[in-house]
Design a protein around this nucleic acid. Structure first.
Length: 399
DNA sequence: TCTGGGGTCCTAGGACCC
DNA sequence: TCTGGGGTCCTAGGACCC
């Protein structure tokens, strides 16, 4: 039982999200193995998972494992729509919701006993509401910490609810395999296995310096803290995105010239998204993947933040040109563009008193960030009062 | 396991500055 | 000309997550 006022966190995670939306919208798919995505499995229904199909698996392998699977093309619009509806229910259930992805969130439900009941009741109601109002199965883990809530939902999947009572935490955690910890992937697990460390309990018997010597500083400390059930992370609704990117797998390797339209499309996608979120970034990264699945990145940091198609494209082209010998040697199979070092929100500048100079500076800054082609309307505010409005392209400011 | 598209965080070396 | 210590920023790669 959770004591009143004690930390209580829900981790809510939609089950096989894309596949569940498909089954919801097409009754013929219900109860059957469904695979979303042809070339690569983007999601697999639990009926398909029972046959060994996993997400990120190659389509050919998936069809070998499950020849009677029904393969459907993804419908991202439907997933975004469903996600929005589910997050509305989350927002109703808790004052602080931290979205982790399109299908997953943490909810802080501390101190809601008198309004909504104890955490276990809130979680049960959340599951019912998502099922009733959106028609999707969802698993919820409940615990005092994010990590435990997350592990709990992982154990309870699919369509489950698992509450880790505060006095049962170690009992729950220590028998689990190290792979269950959030942040322990194949490489880390392998290193731990090589030293006979298989369960979280094994991990807890090693000192922090010992784990640091095996895994490195950050990873060693992280894993040590989690094994001892220490996780002070708060549910944070305002976490900001750090980068915006787009990538594209190439069916076949192409010449550098044939790559340019692809690069333009990627840059356009990325900068468009930045502009709609009033965001601009300074670092442009070109991501490359080669025939042998090795990867490389090349990046350049600009003197000022931009969301302009031209500025980002010019930088990306420069990076691509620098990487040409490597690409010709290794054969390109994927290209991506990302912008990081993001600055968000309205432009904020320190301005001289002179208004005409101020307007010029702001206009320059707007053009730098968004490019002449990237903006339709700009409003200059001085401590909340409207000073000027521009309509683009090429209009003089109305004062 | 022969591979999509979107992200996060950490490490390590080098340039540069005081 | 050679030498310290401390700090920031940039670049590239790697592990991990959904």
């Amino acid at each position: 039982m959770f004591v009143s006022g004690q930390a209580a966190i829900l981790h809510a995670d939609l089950d096989a999200f894309f596949a569940s939306v498909e089954q919801r919208d097409n009754p013929k798919l219900r109860g059957k193995p469904v695979i979303v995505g042809g070339g690569v499995v983007m999601a697999a229904s639990y009926e398909a998972r029972a046959r060994g199909v996993r997400s990120a698996m190659g389509g050919r392998r998936a069809r070998q494992l499950c020849p009677d699977a029904i393969v459907v093309q993804p419908r991202f619009g439907a997933y975004v729509e469903a996600s929005r509806a589910v997050f509305e229910i989350f927002e109703q259930a808790a004052p602080v919701v931290e979205a982790m992805s399109i299908d997953e969130a943490f909810l802080d439900v501390r101190g809601l006993e008198h309004i909504s009941g104890p955490p276990e009741q809130i979680a049960a109601r959340l599951r019912r509401d998502v099922r009733r109002l959106v028609g999707l199965p969802i698993t919820v883990g409940v615990a005092r910490t994010k990590h435990l809530a997350k592990v709990a939902s992982g154990v309870a999947k699919p369509d489950g609810l698992l509450v880790v009572a505060p006095d049962r935490e170690r009992e729950f955690l220590h028998p689990l395999a190290v792979e269950c910890l959030w942040g322990v992937g194949p490489k880390t697990a392998e290193r731990l296995h090589a030293r006979g460390i298989r369960t979280v309990g094994d991990l807890a018997r090693h000192s922090e310096p010992a784990l640091v010597s095996i895994l490195g500083r950050a990873s060693g400390r992280h894993v040590h803290a989690l094994a001892h059930n220490r996780d002070p992370r708060r549910v944070d609704a305002r976490r900001r995105r750090r980068s915006v990117g787009a990538q594209c797998a190439l069916g076949m390797t192409r010449s550098i010239e044939a790559l340019d339209p692809v690069l333009l499309a990627l840059v356009d996608r990325v900068t468009r998204r930045m502009r709609t979120k009033a965001s601009a970034g300074r670092t442009v990264t070109l991501r490359l993947r080669f025939r042998d699945f090795s990867r490389a990145t090349r990046s350049r940091t600009l003197p000022r933040a931009t969301a302009g198609t031209r500025a980002v494209l010019a930088t990306a082209r420069g990076l691509l040109a620098d990487a040409t010998p490597m690409i010709e040697r290794r054969g390109l199979t994927l290209v991506g563009v990302a912008v990081s070092n993001l600055q968000r929100g309205p432009l904020q500048l320190e301005l001289p008193i002179d208004r005409a100079t101020a307007l010029d500076l702001v206009l320059d800054e707007v053009r730098d960030r968004y490019g002449p082609e990237g903006i339709r309307r700009a409003v200059l505010l001085d401590r909340g009062a409207r000073l000027a409005t521009w309509l683009f392209p090429g209009e003089e400011p109305e004062l």
